[in-house]
Amino acid sequence: MTPPEAALDTRGTKPPAVLSCPQITTLRHRADFLRAARALRQGTQGMLVQARCRRDNDPTIRVGYTCSKKIGNAVTRNRAKRRLRSVAAEVLTEKARPGWDYVLVGRPGVTVNRDYTDLLGDLNYALRKLHAGQDQ
């Protein structure tokens, strides 16, 4: 049985439009984090952003988050990562390039206490600098 959304339209019209934003997934493997650490990086006041082009013809954007024990105890580290995830969800859907890996690294004493709009500006600035002069 064919699902209703996959059924052919008898009037000859086009199928419904598909969202054009690339899929964003989370980095899980240590090797991916290490590859990103060897590639491009851009520091800002609120975070460090590492980025690399995978060159594997997969349009998926992958993003990872890391906060060391220098940030503070577990509660503080988790708060910093939550803030980084929120900033990434807002900015990367618009500014990230398909086929790239990004790692957002929290900074001690800053990522947790910095104003949220400043964190948004930090990530926008970092992406602009990382992709300046790069081919699309």
Rank of each mutant, 00 (worst) to 15 (best):
T2I: 02
T2H: 00
P3G: 01
P3C: 00
P3H: 01
P4V: 00
E5N: 01
D9V: 02
D9T: 04
T10C: 07
R11A: 08
R11I: 06
K14G: 14
K14M: 15
P15C: 12
P16A: 13
P16V: 09
P16H: 10
A17K: 12
S20I: 14
S20D: 08
C21V: 13
P22T: 11
Q23Y: 11
I24F: 11
I24P: 14
T25Q: 15
R28G: 09
R28K: 11
H29F: 14
H29D: 14
R30N: 13
R30M: 15
A31W: 04
L34M: 10
R35T: 05
A36W: 10
R41S: 12
Q42G: 07
G43Y: 04
G43R: 10
T44Y: 05
T44M: 06
T44E: 10
Q45P: 06
G46N: 02
G46L: 00
M47V: 04
V49A: 10
A51E: 01
A51G: 03
R52H: 01
R54Y: 11
R54M: 11
D58G: 07
P59F: 07
P59S: 10
T60Y: 07
I61V: 12
V63G: 05
G64T: 12
Y65G: 08
C67I: 04
S68C: 15
S68V: 11
K69D: 15
K70C: 15
I71Y: 14
A74G: 12
A74R: 11
V75D: 14
R77F: 15
N78D: 04
R79D: 07
A80Y: 04
K81W: 10
K81V: 14
R82G: 10
R83C: 09
R83N: 05
R85T: 05
V87M: 12
A88I: 07
A89E: 10
A89S: 08
V91D: 06
L92V: 09
K95F: 11
A96K: 03
R97N: 02
R97Y: 07
G99F: 01
G99P: 05
W100I: 01
W100H: 03
D101A: 07
Y102V: 02
R107M: 02
P108F: 00
G109S: 04
V110G: 02
V112Y: 04
N113I: 13
N113D: 15
R114D: 11
R114K: 15
D115S: 14
Y116A: 11
T117D: 08
L119H: 01
L119D: 00
D122Y: 02
L123K: 03
L123N: 02
N124F: 04
N124M: 06
Y125P: 05
Y125E: 05
A126F: 01
L127Q: 08
K129E: 09
Q134L: 04
D135L: 05
